[in-house]
Simulated assay, not measured.
Amino acid sequence: MSVTSIPQKPQQTRQKKSGFREWLDSVVFAVIAATLIRWLIFSAFVIPTPSMENSLLVGDYLFVSRLHYGTTTPVTPLQLPLTHQTIWGTNIPSYFDWIKLPQYRLPGFTDIKRGDVVVFNLPVEHPDAYNKYSSVLPDLHPHPLDLRSNYIKRCVAIAGDKLEVRGGQVYVNGTAQANPVRMQSEYFVSTTTAVNEQNVFRKNGITDFSQFTETFNDTIASNDESGYIIKTTSTLVEKLRDLDFVKRVEPIHTSKGLKEPYLFPATDLLYWNKDNYGPIDIPKKGVTIPMNELNIALYGEVIKNYDGNDDLEIKNGKILQSGKALTSYTFRQDYYFMMGDNRHNSADSRYWGFVPKDHIVGKAVFVWMSIDPDPASFVNKIRWDRIFRIIE
């Protein structure tokens, strides 16, 4: 029996990639992988302002989990990878808003809870809102929903809660809430003499202070009493009270009934300030409210700009739809109330309102690096005690 051999297919020699091609392939793969991780799993952020002190410090680098609450799909797909609003080191926009897609949120494994430290897109960069808040946040610019500036605050009230601040203390549904461990407030420190600011304040981690020599008001300082106005934690306040040249330390709170300018909402119907705010109901999906004068002041902007209503207008104290005044309204998504832990130095929901759920980016998980922007020496530039600190 004869066997006929099958001719083998001639082997083709694969052309070897050039060094530049291999480098380019590696870069493309790295960019795609980094973009997917940044969008789907976690993102890295740095703290630029002191609004969350003393929980988070300027120069803290942190990881934010997008998995906790579920990541959102892009609204603005025409964007340079690994950028946010502008091309690195320039003011050139890194995106085109020619195409806008509907947003969807992928399933997460938890909901936002009171006390969570949350990163979100700043709502008032909405094209119809940013001009109104330029006195509070002077660098506002309009951006698409998914490309608005990233802010980080603590969620103090969730959808359906009734929030009130009394004398600086947050109450939710009538119950006083536990203050963050490192929450920072403003105090008057009365001293018998001028102090060495480096040894007394900076050495104890107090960086926000100013000398006080005039009568502030009768409840804080008496005539000719001198001292300092500081922002610090309650723990450090107790430490200051033990110093022999400190006569007393008193918290500074704005009196109830004293109206503070630039607060949300901008209305003459309410006399609120940062220390005495509310009560206010946080909008919840499915909840219906009557459209009276107060509710229009509180929720009109939310209904018009963030709840998917492009055909509404606020005119003469009324919300109009196709020229007809609404008598009631049912919210289409949940909202949250955010506050900074540095309670007297934070532009937060008290000044610009609620955060819609579709603006939520993720939960701040831990600090992976911390660099002091103004260290006493180069050796102390890295805050070693903050590396891999879990965010509480």
Score class of each variant (00 low, 15 high):
residue 383 R to S: 10
residue 225 E to S: 12
residue 85 Q to S: 14
residue 367 V to T: 14
residue 314 I to G: 11
residue 293 E to N: 10
residue 327 T to W: 00
residue 365 V to G: 02
residue 236 L to W: 06
residue 336 Y to A: 01
residue 320 L to S: 07
residue 381 K to Y: 04
residue 131 N to G: 14
residue 167 G to S: 06
residue 221 A to K: 11
residue 275 D to L: 07
residue 12 Q to S: 04
residue 216 F to M: 12
residue 123 P to T: 05
residue 178 A to T: 15
residue 259 K to E: 10
residue 194 A to C: 02
residue 392 E to I: 10
residue 175 T to M: 09
residue 223 N to Y: 11
residue 215 T to H: 14
residue 208 D to R: 13
residue 323 G to V: 02
residue 282 I to D: 04
residue 107 P to E: 09
residue 91 N to P: 03
residue 302 V to G: 00
residue 270 L to S: 03
residue 135 S to F: 12
residue 150 N to Q: 08
residue 199 N to F: 03
residue 36 L to M: 11
residue 368 W to M: 03
residue 253 H to P: 01
residue 200 V to N: 03
residue 41 I to Q: 06
residue 30 A to I: 15
residue 255 S to R: 15
residue 73 T to K: 06
residue 176 A to T: 08
residue 109 F to C: 03
residue 238 E to D: 15
residue 46 V to N: 04
residue 157 A to C: 09
residue 362 G to K: 05
residue 184 Q to C: 08
residue 210 S to K: 15
residue 3 V to R: 08
residue 18 S to R: 07
residue 164 E to T: 11
residue 301 E to G: 11
residue 1 M to D: 07
residue 46 V to E: 07
residue 341 D to R: 03
residue 159 A to I: 13
residue 319 I to M: 10
residue 322 S to W: 05
residue 273 N to T: 08
residue 24 L to T: 12
residue 141 H to C: 03
